[in-house]
């Protein structure tokens, strides 16, 4: 199942597993997993390509990470470049440079990226901290706290997809929910938040916000409700 082959694997063995089985953690060059696989222990590699139903009992670390299907990580997951298609569930923290999301993300810990883009939904129990977030919500986007340089959230087109999600998960409205959102440039719609603090803030239709504190600019759609608005700074 493991073998020394391929270039650019830094002298580490590659791991290739398929079918229904267990794989052993450790340090690898390139990892390719297809099927229904349980990875036992922490695993670290240059690149991951996962297909199917994968579960790990430890943490995952990589340069590049691609996942199609469902993934459940018992520890934390960190990879510089990430592409996630499907359902991803991480018990610890999720971190990296770039995340392209197409599906649903559920993170127990904090989530840190320089750039997040794509579509789907997320549920972050901790702090979602990113340079820029540009997402089309097909399901619910939820985080305790969001801290960003720029945040751009739109509701995905009410396509067949959203109907499927709603059918799968009853209260699955494509809306953003957060306790606190803080950032330089915030542009959201269909958002429920206790507090939004930012320099330039745009609140789109369908939003209900407790309090907005803005520095330079605030735009509010007539279809949004804001209980209290405060201009801060000079």
């Amino acid at each position: 199942m493991t073998g020394e082959s391929g270039m650019d694997n830094y002298g580490l063995p590659d791991l290739s597993v398929n079918g229904v089985s267990d794989a052993v953690g450790g340090k690898y060059g390139n990892v390719r997993i297809d099927g229904v696989i349980k990875v036992v222990g922490d695993i670290e590699a240059q690149s991951f390509k996962l297909n199917g139903v994968i579960r790990t009992t430890g943490s995952v670390k990589s340069e590049s990470f691609e996942c199609d299907g469902t993934l459940k990580v018992a520890g934390s997951l960190s990879a510089s470049q990430m592409r996630m298609n499907g359902l991803v569930n991480v018990e610890g923290a999720l971190s990296g440079e770039w995340l392209r999301l197409n599906g649903l993300l559920k993170i127990k810990g904090d989530c840190e990226f320089e750039r997040v883009e794509g579509e789907g939904g997320f549920d972050v129990d901790g702090l979602l901290n990113a340079g820029s977030i540009h997402l089309k919500l097909q399901g619910r986007g939820k985080a305790r706290e969001i801290g960003v340089e720029s945040l751009y959230i739109r509701q995905g087109a009410k396509s067949l997809w959203s109907k499927v999600w709603k059918w799968l998960f009853p209260k699955f409205n494509p809306e953003l929910q957060a306790g606190v959102i803080e950032g330089d440039d915030i542009d959201v719609e269909h958002t429920k938040a206790d507090v939004i603090r930012g320099s330039r803030v745009v609140i789109g239709k369908g939003s209900v916000i407790g309090r907005v504190e803005y520095g330079t600019e605030l735009q509010v759609h007539p279809g949004a409700t804001i209980r209290e608005r405060v201009k801060t700074g000079g």
């Binding site: 840190e112 801290g147 330089d184 440039d185």
Partner: peptide, 20 residues
């Protein structure tokens, strides 16, 4: 946090970036 941003003149984005 608010006092900090006021006194130092940095933005939320910068603070979160430095934390990352």
């Amino acid at each position: 946090k608010k006092e900090l941003l006021d006194t130092t003149g940095i933005s939320y984005g910068q603070l979160y970036r430095w934390k990352r």
